[in-house]
Design a protein around this nucleic acid. Structure first.
Length: 267
DNA sequence: AAACTCGGCAACCGCCCCTGG
DNA sequence: TCCAGGGGCGGTTGCCGAGTT
């Protein structure tokens, strides 16, 4: 949430992001994409480390981020997948459209975890046994075996002896719905920035006049000044007064040391 | 009304893996 | 094969606001 701004020894700003920094990051990423997170802040005019920019974008500024309360369905998915995968927040978040791993993780630690613990105590009459059958629940949600997933699994393996994703947990919450279901979820408050797919590319933003996209973006970036999308980007020396932006049109700006050859190939 | 406590969550940190030279 | 750079992930921190005393 809010952190007192400070600077590290290299002059990189830390702490809370200001609206102006958000504007710069959004403007740069939506126009040029995230070609290199480490170099990005330099070209975007930000005194932030690349990791901070990446995190800010992925967890907060990126469109299609779903904010607000979790629905019962989402919570069920989280509980189910956590029982299966453990603390693989990125894998869990991948199953929840619009949710970030950070948000899922926070929600787990601040809400679901406690709820499970409390309900577990309340329903002490339930005899919990380790049942080999809990894999039955896992078929409803397909966990992608992407490279990331495999990486995560590998990391888990290295960290925790021989454990694998398929070697499920000691206790499957889903075998005991009474432990987690009683708490109603206020799904009404939940909102999403857009109904479109999660996968976003820089090109998706370039023609912001496009009806639905424009509307979604306006609602999403409503906190910024109204002329955000029509104002030239501060660090942009190639503002096109027509309002139409072409991706990667200024290689010199993006890659000053390469003179543009980096993208288009040396001639 | 003031002081205190606690929960929520944005953000940071450090480690690991992947990729390219 | 080794090494360095970059990205991704999970754990943790710490501030603010709401609730409580």
């Amino acid at each position: 949430m809010v952190r007192t701004p400070c600077c590290d020894e290299r002059g990189m700003k830390k702490g809370t992001w200001t609206p102006e920094e958000d504007r710069k990051l959004i403007a740069y990423v939506t126009r040029y994409g995230c070609w290199n997170w480490r170099q990005l802040p330099k070209f975007a005019g930000l005194s932030r480390c690349g990791k901070s920019c990446r995190l800010r974008w992925l967890n907060y500024l990126r469109p299609n981020i779903k904010r607000g309360n979790y629905t019962a369905e989402e919570e069920e998915i989280i509980i189910r997948l956590h029982a299966k995968l453990g603390n693989k927040w990125s894998a869990i978040a991948a199953q929840l459209q619009g949710r970030t791993d950070n948000e899922v993780k926070n929600h787990w630690h601040t809400n679901l975890k406690k709820r499970l613990m409390m309900n577990k105590h309340k329903s002490s009459s339930v005899s919990i046994t380790l049942d080999d059958d809990h894999d039955d629940h896992d078929e409803e949600i397909e966990v992608p075996k992407s490279s990331d997933q495999q990486k995560t699994t590998a990391a888990a393996n290295s960290a925790n002896a021989e454990t694998t994703v398929d070697q499920i947990p000691e206790f499957d919450y889903l075998d005991y719905p009474e432990l987690w279901s009683p708490q109603p979820s206020s799904s009404e408050v939940s909102s999403m920035t857009s109904d479109t797919a999660v996968a976003i590319t820089a090109a998706d933003y370039l023609v912001v006049e496009d009806n639905a996209t424009s509307t979604a973006m306006e609602s999403f970036y409503g906190d910024f000044s109204d002329n955000f999308w029509t104002e030239p980007f501060l660090a942009d020396n190639s503002y096109n007064p027509t309002g139409f932006y072409t991706p990667f049109m200024e290689p010199e700006f993006l890659f000053p040391s390469f003179g543009g050859d980096f993208l288009y190939g040396a001639t």
